[in-house]
Structure formats: C-alpha cells, structure tokens
Design a protein around this nucleic acid. Structure first.
Lengths: 236, 236
DNA sequence: AAAGATATAGACCACATGGTCTACTTAATA
DNA sequence: TATTAAGTAGACCATGTGGTCTATATCTTT
C-alpha cells in the first residue's frame, strides 16, 4: 500500500481586522487539516490571491469598508473557480445574511462562535454543503417570510383594482394579448381570422373597459396589472 | 405562594396517516407539556377544528391527497389566528420545503426524525423561532441559490442585448420615458417645451436605434430590457 | 477650422389608429 | 319567445403616427 494521507484543504482568509485574521490562521494551523494559502485585509488584494492560489474555500468578512463583503462574494463567484465562500460577520444582521446567501455564500457564521463550530462549518462547506447555524437560519427565515408576505400583500392589493381586466371578454383578452406584442390591427386580424374592422371594434371596447384611449396605455395597463402573469399564476 | 404550573401548549395534528397521527399524539401526551386538542386526517376537517380550538401550533403533514399541505398552510395563516404551522413530511423535497417556508411555515421536519428532535422543533416554534434542521436548511439553500442564480443569469443575458438602449442620447431617453407613460407627441412636446416635429424626430431616431417600428414595440422593448428599473437598479 | 454628434424644427405624405354609428348572427338567459 | 351579451363587420371621418428629406444652431472633438 502506498503512502496514503488526507490532502489538506486550501483556505484563504479576508478580513480587515488583522488580529482576527491571525487568530483564525493560528486556529486552522493548529487543527492540522487546513493549509492557509493566503490572507488579505481587503477584497481587492484578496481577489488577486484567489486567482493565483485557487483555494478550496475563502473565509470572507462581511463588514469591511470600501469594497464590501457582498461585492466580494459576487466577484469571487464571477471568477468561475471552485472556490467556496464562507461569510464571516460580527453581527446577525438579517438583511446582510439574506443578501449574502442570495448571491451564493455557502455559509454564514458569526465571529463570536466557538472555534469548534467554525471548524465544523468550514468542513461542511468543503463537503459541498451549505452551512448556516440554527440561530442565523432562524433570522434568515423571518426576513425571508416577511419579504414574501409583503410581496403577496402587494399583489393582493393590485388584484383589487384588477377588475377592469376581469371585465374583458375572452375574445377581447385574445386581442389585448396580441396588442401587448406590438402587433397592428391588420396583424391581429390575420392571426384571429377576423376582419380588421372587427379588431377595431374589440379594441375600442377594450379601451372603454380599461378606461384608456390608446393602445400604448392599454398595453401598459395590462402589464402593470398582471395580465401576462395571470395565466402563469405563480404556483404557490 | 399560589399553585404555580406551566401552562400546557395546545397542539393540533393533521395527517392522513392515522397511525402516524396516533403515534405523535402518544408521544406528545407522554411528554406531559403538550395538550393535543384535536386531530384530523384532512385539511378541511382540520381547518374547522383550528377555528374552534385555536391551538398554539399545528403539525401539518405536507403529503396529503386533494387539498394538500401547502394550501393548508396558506389557509391556516389566512385565518389570522396566532396558530403556528410546523410542516411534516416524509421526504426532503427541496421544492416543497422552499414553498412551505415561503408561504409561512414556522418549521419543517421529517417524519423520520428522532422524537426528541421533534419535541425540540415544536418548542422552538412555540417560542416564536423558525426551525429547520441543518440537513433541510442545506437543501433549502441549494434550491434558493439555484433559483436566484438562474434569475441573475437571465438578467445578465438581457444586459448583453441592452446596448440598444445604451445607444440612446439623454434627450431620447427622456422622450422614451414619456412614451412609456402613453403620452402623445403633442403631450411630450408640451412637457419638454419643444415642437411636436422635434418629438417626432427623436421618436424616429429611437425606433431606428431600438430596431422597432412603432411606439408600442418601443415601450415593450424598454420595459423588457429594464429601462425603467435601470435607475432603481436592484441593490444586490 | 473642420468634422461629428446632438437638439431643434419644417414640409409632405401614406397609412394606422381611434371614435361613432349601424347591423347581422349566434348563444345564453329570462 | 323575447332579451341580452358576445362576436362579427361595414362606413365614415378626424387625427395620430411613422417615414423621409432638408436645414439650422450648439457643442465637442479632432
């Protein structure tokens, strides 16, 4: 049997607090299974190092001046490498957590966490999982649900005024749909196998029902009031 | 000192599998701190019981025929009571988890979980937290990031073609913006203090740059290519 | 000083659009 | 059976829209 050993994981650290940076480096070195291939105190330098050393994972501080952590995550992901980002932050700011996860952080941990937990988080991420401690995922979900609730309420309030669109007959809806594609009367007539005059009649009825006086306004009304998304109807 | 005791939490169970239902009831009764105030094998009956007994928490099975679990969550929340929903499922279907959390489940647990963990989940939810075990939250986030990645890619591919809008001069953008409000040439002329002819000249230039041949198509192009949202510019 | 881009504006014309009225057919409803 | 709603379609006309060409005035850039 050949000389067998577990390959060390290549880690990079980016944090504008140098003391914290050193602390983590110490910790990871002591652990023995990690190889800290680079450290940086700002994103710009960090990005160059990442390009050069292509680490398996980057521990990235979120709360840095200038080019901040969120931008950092995006730019690292944009490199198209296989480098995973574990976000670090001193605070459990729900909005920040949400945005970081949204743009592709593989995990988010607080600086106040116990060392063992940080090690665990790093290992989980390295194993292809996404790691968010329970406390943070709880905060995340509150924020997540709140934003969806607001979205739903907004849609519902729109639905109340949407009755103008509901007044349209089937045929009128068909005509309006073609109008929203920027097709002329003649074009609509051909598509629906009816005369141009009939199209005009329908269009005039549509205008009256939607209380507008030209096609552009009708199209705008249709779009703003979810005419197109109506059929797709967000499946819960 | 008066007779002091911890008030039992009122729990309801909805699951079409009666055996599982009984099992959980047993478990919760043994625990001693819960009061199972009702059980149901379908959502319709369950809803009525919820209205009647107003439990603190409902354990709701996701995988039921007919009125399924997702609808159940929505309808329970629509009641406007203080009843929390903990979703139960046999499978860790990412899409189902995502949708359940999106519409307001306070937690999601697998039926295969250890009893102690289920008890813990219930208690967390009762304490106002949101509970998703690490394994499930990991699945959730994969799904979450995937959908956002797709959205971003779609936007980026749009951005590539967006140069047509970039070709517009300032004045042309102003004119286009007014067009997207369904204003006539005369109206635009008045708003911008220029002659109607000038507006027409601008509009013709816009058409050529956007490669369309009427205002409706120009407006559609503008909307579909983020002309209006350009200034708002989604802050990460 | 010349060239190019931008904003302005007039003239002319063909055609699309929108408004109004009438009228026929069919299907659903009272 | 009478009525109503929906879809069809013609006629007429005023006006809006879009295409093309020409022509200034500025301002920037070369």
């Amino acid at each position: 049997m050949r000389h067998e050993f577990k390959k060390k994981s290549r880690v990079m650290l980016i944090d504008d607090n140098y003391e914290h940076l050193s602390g983590i480096r110490e910790l990871l070195n002591l652990e023995g299974t990690f190889d800290v291939v680079g450290i940086a105190t700002n994103v710009t330098v960090g990005l160059n190092l990442i390009k050069k050393y292509q680490p398996d994972i980057v521990l990235l501080d979120m709360n840095m001046p200038e080019r901040d952590g969120l931008q950092g995550i995006m730019e690292i992901n944009k490199l198209g490498l296989n480098t995973k980002v574990l976000a670090l932050s001193g605070y459990d700011d729900a909005d920040l957590i949400f945005r970081a996860m949204k743009i592709g952080a593989k995990g988010y941990v607080l600086k106040t966490m116990a060392s063992a937990q940080l090690i665990y988080a790093i290992e989980e991420v390295l194993n292809g999982k996404i790691y968010l401690p329970l406390a943070l995922s709880s905060r995340f979900f509150e924020y997540f649900q709140k934003s969806f609730r607001e979205e739903t309420e907004k849609q519902n309030s729109q639905t109340d005024e949407e009755n103008l669109l509901d007044a349209l007959t089937q045929r009128e809806e068909e005509v309006l749909e073609l109008l929203t594609q920027g097709i002329t009367y003649k074009g609509v007539a051909n598509k629906l196998f009816i005369s141009e005059t009939t199209v005009k009649t329908h269009v005039n009825n549509i205008f009256q029902k939607l209380q507008v006086n030209d096609r552009t306004q009708a199209v705008l009304y249709a779009i703003n009031n979810g005419f197109l998304t109506k059929k797709v109807k967000m499946a819960v």
